[in-house]
Design a protein around this nucleic acid. Sequence first.
RNA 1: GUGGGCGUAGCUCAGUUGGUUAGAGCGCCUGGUUGUGGUCCAGGAGGUCGGGGGUUCGAGUCCCCUCGUUCACCCCA
Length: 424
Amino acid sequence: MAEPTFRAPKGTRDILAPGSTRLRALVDEFARQADNSGFGEVVSPIFEDLGVFKRLGESTDVVTKEMFDFYDKGDPPQQLALRPELTASICRAYAEHRPVPPWKVWYEGPQFRYEQPQAGRYRQFTQVGVEVLGTDDPQADVDVIVLGARFFESLGLVRIELALNSLGSPGDSGSRRAYEQALVKHLEQNRSRLSTQSQVTVERNPLRVLDSKREQDSAVIAGAPVMVDFLDDESAAHFAAVRAGLDAVGIAYEISPRLVRGLDYYTRTTFEFAAPGLAGAQNAVGGGGRYDGLVEDLGGPPTPGIGFALGVDRILLACDAEGVFGAPSNTVDVFVVDVTGGTEALKVCDRLRQAGIATDRSYGGRSMKAQMKVADRSGAEFAVIIGEDELACGVLTLRDMGDSSQQRVAAGSLVDELIRKRTL
RNA sequence: GUGGGCGUAGCUCAGUUGGUUAGAGCGCCUGGUUGUGGUCCAGGAGGUCGGGGGUUCGAGUCCCCUCGUUCACCCCA
């Protein structure tokens, strides 16, 4: 292929119709369901002060290696970063505006991570998500998870697996510390059997070792202690309530004691939606959990929070794999063919479009045959033909592209005629 | 960041052990007389074979570098 002068940057892509139409349809469907569940949309900046994202965890790759950060032109310059996710932005917004809790919000939009791209993993990717701030009621957790599960269902996806875990509470009073100590002890004792990568991870972020997909680590991981055995009474009760809620609504899930997530802020409830139908390792189509300390980390009042983010690009791949939620066809209702110069087409198109009838035409004064071919391709149900005869008589020819029947109609009654035909 | 596969017309791909003006299908354009599409027929446009360097009398076909893509690790959505 001849090399174009410019191309989309690595890990980014242009999404053309009908793919773009499909993307919008997916986001629209998510918006509809989120609105329907009492969430309001938040449109937040695409970049933030770098500090906002550093709170995601200094030991996470997202913060340390994958940030698109830069300085602005201020004096002194401010260090900013393209958002790698949206939960931190939402928490920053909460701390800034202090809305009345519980604050239920949804969002959609592009996010950025400087990673090696591969199928289902891009440097610019789109997520949709929700957050509920200001309540630690486990039923909020349930509501959030149910929304995600129902959304997948509404797309027609059948093969979505929900994994659920509790990470307990951090801090002195919580149960996380005791668990981490037990886990590190186990990992240290079996250090020689771990992969070299995991041996490094033990030092940096021991929980993440549980997430290793390397064959070599599986035995040690299988024998590791599990968080749910270490939960304090409060966290255990919370976890039980979440499970009971999911059972009550009838959402299937699997307890995954070794489910840990990549960002450090998670507490208690964590969950992940996976599409096993996706080839390769990029089969997590969404995930989330509780982050009861994040707002406070960002300078706000102590505020519990729960939410999820879904990877739109991967969801669409999963839809492809299951053959559901296909791209809608970008068709138009009427195609105007004008071989008299085009001025009539301008007028007819304007009239039809104002009446809400999707209308297209061709340009460049092509032959009738050529214009009819374009009309056919457009998928239009009707063609409006304007030739010298019609122009002379002040009428239009309306052709049904399905059965090839045509009739002459007065210019003034075209809209009425089309509306009449469409309701038949 | 590490390692493997791939990179030929807009798209999907052929291109023999390196050898004359690089092919197909689809798509696109123009025709098949008197203004009309979907089928069919005939023409046509469009590639310096991702880019750069090297080996050779000669490279799309071999070597090196580079970019992109893809898969795995890693990470995550």
